[in-house]
Write a protein that binds this DNA or RNA. Structure first.
Lengths: 211, 211
DNA sequence: TTTACTTAGGGGGAAAATCCCCTTTTTTAA
DNA sequence: TTAAAAAAGGGGATTTTCCCCCTAAGTAAA
């Protein structure tokens, strides 16, 4: 019997999908958690009931899919993560893949595809749909995300998605307005932006800031 | 037997939730559609198999939950709409309720609550969770949405969510920069905003602009 | 026909934001 | 340990945004 765990804050959905998985031959559901933290707590006490595959949501409170997947890749490399989310945002997909997810199921998945994906992840180690494969190739080719934002810059961006002026942001970050100016300049240059409006849109698109 | 239909573009989820509904006593699933248009087409040819309740997603391509609910309220008032969505955005909830939805199930719903909600909607005509009730009361009391934005103002807002300067927006809208200035002023005043960043956030929160 | 509302346009000034070029201090890596 | 980044701060100029107050034409309603 293959063991499957579900991590999703949408309780109804994980219960429903759990029902689906139980219908598959040779599959059982060993755990349903509402966020990464709870799931990791489960793993620490679970002895023989460690799952082979985890169906992982991306957006969750407390500990999100990306963070959880990174943790699992490091501490439980045998457990395969299969992302299952309504997010079809390219940057989110890439983040999950880079964090160690073995596959990413989009919302337009059918029941039979879920079973196939579970089997392939267990037997071959990965499962990519055409859509996801396209996204991965696109982002690899375009090298769009070679921009590396530093922690302090990201913090600045979050504040910039607010009605605060740069002066006020400077106060909040205990820096001089001129330093903030520097962050603005470097961020604009890196991302090819013209003004703060563009920055806000970028931040929201790339999940740096959630409105 | 109570008849239930599901309208959701997330095929996997509707299949899974359909499985859940079939487990309930006295319930059967008569139709699963991926958007409002497809569901209405089904209704037009379905004779005796018209559903008592529809579990309706909000965000769907082609024909969304709000539009579909409005249509159903007008043409099929006997069919009760129960919104079932991951969107817990207040304005979205209010839009669905105002469009005629008899209830709104948030993501934190349990299986047993779904059954209860279905039964209550069928027997009493509506089902509101505490969370939704709170949202409805809040928005009613605060009268936050008494702001009425004119078409031309909304058009301006959409352009303001761009890297264009006001001067460029004026050109795009074939108006003088000073007229745009007037729109900016009135919109800021109506919405209590301090600057353009606030406007962008507002526009995204209220689905005027989608990044 | 007068009143009131909407739409369009404007002046002028203050405050932010943007841009370019430059210095000092702290970290990091060779 | 020394050179090279990175982080923090700055001067000064230009553009954009923001704010308050004002006019005129069209329109709808009373």
């Amino acid at each position: 019997m293959y063991k499957v765990a579900l991590v999703d804050d949408h309780i109804l959905l994980s219960e429903a999908i759990g029902g689906l998985v139980r219908e598959f031959i040779n599959f059982e559901v060993v755990n349903i958690s509402v966020n990464g933290k709870e799931f990791i707590r489960y793993l620490e006490t679970a002895n023989s009931d460690k799952p082979d595959v985890v169906l992982m949501d991306v957006k969750m409170p407390v500990m999100g899919g990306v963070e959880t997947t990174k943790y699992l890749s490091k501490h439980y490399p045998d457990i395969k993560v299969l992302a299952l989310s309504v997010e079809e945002d390219e940057s989110v997909v890439m983040q999950m893949i880079r964090s160690g997810a073995k596959g990413y199921l989009l919302k337009d998945t059918r029941k039979s595809i879920l079973e196939q994906a579970l089997l392939e992840v267990i037997n071959y180690g990965f499962y990519y749909t055409n859509t996801v494969e396209r996204i991965v190739k696109q982002t690899e080719n375009l090298h769009e995300d070679e921009v590396v934002l530093k922690d302090r810059e990201i913090e600045f961006i979050k504040h910039a998605c607010t009605e605060m002026t740069y002066k006020q942001i400077a106060e909040k970050m205990f820096l001089s307005p001129k330093t903030i100016e520097g962050y603005r300049e470097s961020v604009f240059q890196k991302l090819g932006l013209k003004n703060r409006t563009g920055l806000v849109i970028y931040a929201i698109k790339n999940n740096i800031f959630t409105p």
